[in-house]
């Protein structure tokens, strides 16, 4: 409970800064409109107006919260196309778009983690892979994903792969990397004594892997999965931009087309909340697993 106060202090400071920035950035528009109407505004009126504009440069925090609420709970429960009235999720709600993003993230994260895992095993056990794979893996991450994503979509489209998978491939492209790096380190975590020990027992490579290397790598595995899942989410959102078939990425893009800053910010926050939840869930699995293994710190 001691950690609550510092956290709240930081949150309060961020909110104060944000509100101050809201006033500063939206004032010009308010004052401009007042001048054209020939009205003189008091400072309090200016402040109130900057926080209630339809398309502010910077929406106030409470506007974002209200939009988040409206585009999730309110839309689904009262909207014409909402879940309450139609039994299916509304295509205008963040729940609908969030789910599209989440499902591609899951698939991409699974592919990426699996690929990273297999590559790491290869790198640790095969000299040729050890020398050749890592430079390519690093090179792959130096290409801006925003440039690569449309090409992946186009190439996969041309061979008939559409829908969830192309986005998941982009998510996997970003999320395999932390898993490779973390797992190579993790599988190499056993020290010389432990490896020599295995040799004195004439243990097979399989036993050494399953009983020593794999359990040793678990703390590294979870740490890299936390980074990997957040990267998968970013990859999915970037992949949604050219696809235009729903998802938080589409909400971001359409928001910027129509100058709907509040929509952009609420989609951003939805993505951030999603990432936090995903990382939190992995953290929970990590704690339970490591405690069961007797490795809890």
């Amino acid at each position: 409970m001691k950690s609550v106060l510092p956290v709240l202090t930081v949150v309060a400071a961020i909110l104060a800064l944000w509100y101050a920035a809201t006033v500063q950035m939206n004032r010009a528009w308010t004052e401009d409109r007042a001048a054209r109407a020939g009205v003189e505004l008091t400072f309090a009126e200016v402040v109130a107006d900057t926080m209630s504009q339809q398309r502010p440069r910077l929406p106030a925090p409470h506007q974002v919260v209200v939009e988040l609420w409206n585009s999730t709970v309110v839309e689904e429960m009262t909207g014409r196309r909402g879940w309450w009235n139609t039994g299916t999720l509304s295509n205008r709600s963040l729940i609908h778009h969030g789910w599209i993003t989440l499902s591609a993230t899951f698939l991409g994260f699974a592919i990426g983690t699996g690929l990273g895992f297999v590559l790491a095993i290869g790198i640790v056990h095969n000299r040729a892979m050890d020398a050749s794979v890592m430079p390519w893996a690093i090179a792959s991450q130096t290409i801006p994903i925003i440039a690569l994503a449309p090409m992946i979509i186009v190439v996969l489209n041309s061979v008939g792969i559409v829908g969830l998978l192309p986005k998941a491939v982009i998510a996997a492209y970003l999320s395999f990397f932390p898993v490779v790096v973390g797992m190579v380190k993790g599988l190499r975590a056993p020290d010389m004594i432990q490896l020599d020990q295995m040799k004195t027992w004439n243990a097979s490579g399989r036993d050494t892997f399953l009983k020593l290397r794999l359990p040793s790598s678990m703390p590294y595995f979870f740490a890299s999965m936390k980074i990997g899942v957040a990267a998968a989410l970013v990859g999915t959102i970037v992949g949604e931009l050219p696809v235009q078939q729903g998802g938080l990425g589409v909400r971001l893009l359409s928001g910027s087309y129509y100058g709907q800053t509040i929509q952009i910010w609420s989609a951003l926050f939805a993505a951030a909340i999603l990432a936090a939840v995903l990382v939190g869930v992995i953290g929970l699995i990590q704690r339970v697993t490591l405690r069961r293994m007797g490795m809890a710190q």
Binding site: I193, D196, T200, W201, M293
Partner: peptide, 19 residues
């Protein structure tokens, strides 16, 4: 070694923390 003729005790106990 293959016949497991010896037991070897190293400088460090080298016990597995998860066991």
């Amino acid at each position: 070694r293959r016949a497991r003729a010896y037991g070897y005790v190293f400088q460090a106990a080298g016990l597995y923390p998860w066991r």
